[in-house]
Write a protein that binds this DNA or RNA. Structure first.
Length: 485
RNA sequence: GGCGCGUUCGUCUAGCGGUUCAGGACGCUGCCCUCUCAAGGCAGAGAUCACGGGUUCGAAUCCCGUACGCGCUACCA
């Protein structure tokens, strides 16, 4: 047995940001580990020197932490099976590649890029599978040694015997079979001395005692190479679970071209980590019931790999937005008020931030009306400052010839109130309506317009309570003066 | 082209041979509630379960084929 404990890993390459597909892969690994009292390992796959991005690893870790996916072993944190960054394990890969060469399971290849391109072109023209033709396998020991001594650049390739069957057992897809005749003699060690993904991944998973390889479906076609490598090394093969892809609305693999894929940019847009994690968990998995709202710890309890779907899932922003609203409403007013304060401080209303008590009132009356905190200043700027115009639609519907007279009736009563609370505004209004012999609506609608400039929003008295008596009076006066119909 | 994977309402999905002329959620429409807008409640539209063959008394569910989609096919992961 590889390990008596479940050990899984998330192994991203540091390309600068965390892809939402990567987030889901990381999440499923995390959930599986936690569910089984196992260990969640983070490993950095930085074997491509051309794609190195400064600060990418730090960013990756930061984003994973933001999402709440704490890893047990990995860079910075450390662990018994490190180092957890592949570029720090180069000699391990070299040593193992050499071992395969010695045993005839891999071989040196000195072919130039030009020859390989030509070969591929020929094969394509003949409609053959573009695979390496084992040209360098024919080289004698002496020829090889000479070339190495002469400083020829070389790679090490996996030596695959054709006409054999490789069976991959996948937890999600069942048994998948491949013929070795369709598997290329994959490069294991590149001419710059770095390993390819295939070599590094197998070696690391073995030494890090990974029991379950949970990764994206795009890896399924290269899994036979990995199985063969485990066999060649004489190592136990871990369990595989290939996750369905996350898709664009047109059902192609989720990509940058068709919207945001960086977890960081969702965070910046104001999505809650709880919502993103919840949403992404449901893309390709469900517990078998109707439940859709989960916190991370609840996902741990409910999760199982067996219930992961096979088909790709379209990333549906509308549903994410809905879940964000759901999670937002579960937060208490104080938390929401804190978020609002931060949001305001970063925007153009930064000089008009109300006191904490008022902030609390604002979130309390706006919470049912928003999916994002940032919608508060956008949808209800009148909670912070006077309206600069009056909505045409509202004027037509609610502002009648007699309206100014009605408002002039209630205005002095509002002015006369002393330290009014919300109920006082309402009491006065209802009394006034009654004495005028009109419905309360005849006052409420124009007052809403006068005070907010728009015809929708929180309850009128909530608005009054937020902006305060002085503003209420001033805004009514202004409206009566300015609105002419 | 080859290899592999997949295919239930627009989208995410339930369903693992019969109680389903297919259930839930998002979105959409309408009604109720209501000072408005939301939220909430209710109702509705929306899927010949990709198609064609089998197996079976009986199939969305099992098997085969076809189509379509997607992935892989690099000294990228």
């Amino acid at each position: 047995m590889i390990s008596d404990k479940v050990r899984v890993r998330f192994a991203p390459s540091p390309t600068g940001y965390l892809h939402v597909g990567g987030l889901r892969t990381a999440l499923y690994n995390y959930l599986y580990a936690k569910k089984n009292n196992g260990v969640f390992v983070l490993r950095i796959e930085d074997t491509d020197q051309n794609r190195k991005v400064e600060g990418a690893v730090e960013n990756l870790i930061k984003t994973l932490n933001w999402a709440g996916l704490r890893y047990d072993e990995g860079p910075v944190t450390g662990g018994e099976h490190g180092p957890y960054v592949q570029s720090e394990r180069l000699d391990i890969y070299k040593e193992h590649a050499d071992r395969l060469v010695k045993e005839g399971k891999a071989y040196y290849c000195f072919c130039s890029k030009e020859r390989l391109e030509l070969l591929r072109k020929e094969q394509e023209e003949k409609k053959l599978q573009p695979v390496y033709d084992k040209h360098c396998l024919k080289l004698s020991k002496q020829e090889i040694q000479e070339k190495i001594n002469d400083g020829f650049p070389y790679v090490i390739r996996l030596n695959i015997r054709p006409n054999e069957n490789v069976v991959v057992k996948d937890i999600i897809r069942g048994i998948v079979e491949f013929s070795t005749s369709t598997v290329d003699d994959q490069v294991l060690l590149k001419s710059d001395g770095f390993p390819t993904y295939h070599l590094a991944n197998v070696i690391d998973d073995h030494y890090m005692k990974i029991t379950h390889v949970i990764r994206g479906e795009e890896w399924l076609p290269s899994t036979p190479k990995h199985v063969l490598l485990y066999n060649y090394f004489g190592w136990e093969v871990p369990s595989f679970a290939h996750l369905p892809l996350l898709l664009n609305p047109d059902r192609s693999k989720l990509s940058k071209r068709q919207g945001d894929v960086a977890v960081e940019s969702y965070a910046e847009k104001g999505y809650l980590k709880e919502a993103l994690v919840n949403f992404v968990a449901l893309l390709g998995w469900n517990a078998g019931d109707d439940r859709e709202f989960y916190y991370l710890n609840e996902l741990v309890d409910a999760f199982s790999l067996e219930r992961v779907n096979k088909a790709g899932a379209v990333f549906d922003i509308q549903k994410l937005d809905w879940l964000n609203a759901e999670h937002l409403r579960k937060l208490d007013d104080a938390t929401l008020a804190g978020m609002l304060k931060e949001e305001l401080a970063a925007g153009e209303l930064k000089d008009l931030i109300p006191g904490d008590e008022t902030l609390l009132k604002i979130v309390s009356c706006m919470r049912e009306r928003i999916s994002f905190i940032k919608e508060i200043p956008v949808n209800a700027p009148y909670l912070f400052r006077k309206p600069d115009s009056y909505e045409e639609k509202g004027l037509q519907k609610g502002w009648k010839a007699e309206t100014p007279a009605h408002l002039n009736e209630i205005l002095p009563k509002y002015e006369a109130l002393e330290n009014p609370v919300k109920d006082d505004y309402e009491r006065v209004l209802r009394e006034t309506a009654e004495s005028l012999g009109i419905g309360a609506g005849k006052l409420i609608h124009p007052l809403r317009l006068a005070v907010s400039g728009v015809s929708g929003g929180p309850g009128l008295f909530d608005i009054f309570d937020v902006i305060g008596q002085k503003e209420v009076v001033e805004r009514i006066k202004t409206a009566v003066e300015k609105i002419r119909i």
